[in-house]
């Protein structure tokens, strides 16, 4: 199978040792979120599976997990979309040339893009949660004929907070995908939907036996999205979500990312709901 090469790239890269990347381009997506294009200084290519993440290191400041947000077929310009919330994320978006960013990865599993071939797919994203889903969208659009119907629901706090605005426009105009976008609060120019992302479910009707869902966003958003998907008849084995936990190593060694019996870094970050429904949405687990 040809696709294997993209979807099942080697985990065997040496990940305890970080590679150095230069920042080729910084693109401001929203007032607090930037997309960085990184180029490997060792000139070796880099490959990943949609849904995977890297540990990005800012010199002397720290290392944090950041999802791969670019095209999985691009081997030399690696995209990450970073929301600045604290010390490390701030240092990362300011690490301009000639400095470097340290990178270990890719870590984690990916979205189930192989087993969902021939099926309908719905992608639901909230806020920065769109970042790890964008590579999956690229992949599905590139292999569009191999999938059934394709739905995309995306919500952000305000129009200003929408990521990838140019692409959103393109996706909305495509006839081979049903894209819906909403914001919690509009502004004077906003003419689209208003309300949290779950309000978009009224626009669509899913075929419960034939649809897989990929969901990423704040935990509370994922919780309500899962309820909507179940309402539409999807069973838990068809609902995939990407979990977030504190991470220090990415390699299953530091223990920080434990979630019930799982290590989010090595067993996830993507889980099917039937794996985790015993723990998901429970307080303080």
């Amino acid at each position: 199978m040809k696709e294997k090469s993209t979807l099942e790239t080697a985990q065997e890269v040496e990940v305890e040792v970080m590679r150095k990347f230069s920042v080729e381009e910084v693109f401001k997506e929203t007032p607090d979120t930037y997309t960085l294009l990184l180029k490997p200084l060792d000139k070796k290519d880099y490959s990943f599976v949609p849904g995977q993440f890297n540990m990005l290191y800012a010199f002397g400041v720290g290392e944090v997990p950041i999802s791969l947000s670019g095209d999985p077929d691009e081997k030399y310009l690696i995209a990450h979309t970073i929301r600045v919330v604290g010390a490390v994320t701030n240092a990362l978006v300011n690490a301009r040339k000639p400095k470097f960013i340290g990178l270990r990865g890719p870590f984690g599993n990916g979205w189930p893009l192989e087993k969902t071939k021939g099926k309908d797919v719905i992608i639901v994203a909230g806020g920065i949660g769109l970042a790890p889903l964008r590579p999956a969208i690229y992949y599905i659009l590139k292999h569009r004929k191999e999938y059934g119907r394709f739905f995309f629901l995306y919500g952000a706090r305000t129009p200003n907070d929408l990521l990838y605005k140019k692409e959103l426009k393109e996706w909305k105009s495509r006839f081979d995908m049903d894209a819906f976008i909403t914001v919690d609060a509009g502004d004077e120019k906003w003419t689209g939907n208003i309300g949290v992302v779950t309000t978009l479910f009224k626009h669509i009707k899913l075929d419960p036996n034939n649809t897989y869902a990929f969901v990423c966003g704040p935990e509370i958003m994922m919780k309500f999205t899962v309820l909507e998907l179940r309402n539409q008849g999807l069973t838990d084995d068809k609902i995939y979500i990407s979990m977030e936990r504190n991470m220090k190593c990415g390699m299953g060694l530091c223990g920080r990312c434990q979630f019930g019996p799982y290590f989010v870094c090595k067993n996830g970050p993507i889980f099917s709901m039937d794996q985790i429904n015993r723990f998901f949405g429970r307080r303080e687990v």
Binding site: F59, V61, K248, L253, C254, G255, R256
Partner: peptide
């Protein structure tokens, strides 16, 4: 119990940085 954290720091002159587990 095996859990660990890491500490990152750099020299005052910002020439060298370290990471400890």
């Amino acid at each position: 119990c095996f859990c660990s954290s890491v500490f990152d720091s750099s020299s005052l002159s910002m020439d060298v940085a370290e990471r400890w587990r």
